[in-house]
Design a binder for these strands. Structure first.
Lengths: 233, 233
DNA sequence: CGTCAGATTGATCTGTGTCAAACCCAGTGG
DNA sequence: CCACTGGGTTTGACACAGATCAATCTGACG
């Protein structure tokens, strides 16, 4: 559990916070950065689990986390990935409800914990902050609703292409087209909402068509345009 | 276009508003109820369409509206129904984006239009209101994410049962189990995310099993418990 | 060098989508 | 009053995408 990377000091964390919430005053940022609020999480570690009564939310200083829900027969549905500068868990805090999804660190992470009292205090006392949060919630809402349509209407083949492109968009790729996010076939299938074998077969098809290349978790997008066509974009 | 029912006076509308947004002050409520902000919409009328640059959102004084997105080959995905006391369109206003879904009146409706300037002003000046809006957005977010899991993992048979139950929950039913919301098979299929014929076949199956009865758009839930089992609840 | 998770490939089964035809019923207009 | 019309509903036949099950393979790592 010893951090492999040094925890950032308050100043560094403050700078990150300001990027996401530019409405925060210095005083308020101070109130967020109490001792112990900044914590290191090892890759693979679970931050919290569906149904947990969390009493605060988390700001990501660095790293990538996976947000998912467990369904029938233990199959997981990945809702989204969050990264540096994102905030998660606020839904449960604001509604005073148990967590509706589980969170797992996909890479080593540094998270800043924001207790419910402070979050609610900020929303009720800093209108700019409330507006920032509002925008974040609305953006997520738009993405989720868009995804409902896709998952309901598009074929798995189309959705997989779309997911690959959106991963490229969210996390970037090397100059050669390699996705910066390394991800297992199983996780891919849990985003797309299909069986792992199907993802593997479709990736092979793409490969045969010269659209992608892959070795293990390294996936290379060779023909973005064609993938967009398949995805229906 | 002449209203079949008289438009409510400001006082009636004010009362409805207070039920949803109890943080509103009298002055603020006044600012919402300018002349012309309250309008009647006929059943089947389109309030606005995906991609429209709307400059305000709507509060539902009475009636039911359908929120949907158009996908491949004109097939629609219904995101949700809203009714009396609900507010819609705020996502686009808050993000300054074009509408991401279309709105249609499922019954005769009376809507109260809230211009963007006023909505944003309220959020930035009345923390209680901002918090109310925040809760609404978060609630919708929770529902949407939950639905992503369902649509990705459950079979159509399971989802149809779930949708019927949730319609019963949202809009109620008569003592005999008849859903108060009358809905076409096509709309049902557009919620579940399947073909119309499949909904019809599954309803027939349910009927054969004594779980539901139906004549036209009147659907009667005969065995709620069994339906819950099918839905996986 | 053994082990184990993840990746791959094949064979098979089935839930749903698609296409086509017919039917029911309410509203309209002659 | 009745034929006409058209939207919604129903049923059947058929094809196929994708799930499932089973077996094998690969590569990373202790």
């Amino acid at each position: 559990m010893t951090p492999k990377i040094p925890l950032p000091d308050s100043a560094a964390c403050y700078a990150k916070l300001k990027q996401t919430f530019n409405a925060l005053t210095d005083n308020e940022a101070q109130s967020l950065l109490t001792p112990g609020s900044i914590r290191f999480y090892k890759k693979g570690e679970h931050i919290y689990t569906e149904g947990a009564r969390i009493k605060g939310c988390y700001f990501i200083y660095s790293g990538i986390i996976k947000i998912y829900q467990t369904g029938h027969e233990g199959k997981n549905q990945i809702i989204k990935f969050d990264r540096e500068g994102d905030i998660f868990g606020f839904r449960s805090v604001i509604l005073h409800e148990p967590a509706c999804s589980s969170i797992e660190a996909l890479s080593d992470c540094i998270l800043c914990y924001i207790p419910d009292t402070i979050l609610l205090h900020l929303i009720k006392n800093n209108p700019g902050f409330a507006y920032d949060m509002m925008q974040i919630a609305c953006k997520e809402l738009g993405v989720s609703n868009h995804y409902i349509r896709d998952i309901a209407q598009k074929s798995v083949r189309e959705r997989l292409a779309e997911v690959l492109l959106s991963i490229a968009g969210d996390f970037g790729m090397e100059k050669d087209g390699t996705l910066k996010l390394s991800i297992t076939r199983e996780d891919l299938s849990n985003i797309v909402g299909t069986a792992t074998e199907t993802v593997i077969r479709l990736l092979s098809e793409y490969k045969a068509e010269g659209l992608v290349d892959s070795r293990g978790r390294k996936i290379v997008l060779l023909n973005i345009e064609k993938l967009k066509t398949i995805a229906g974009l």
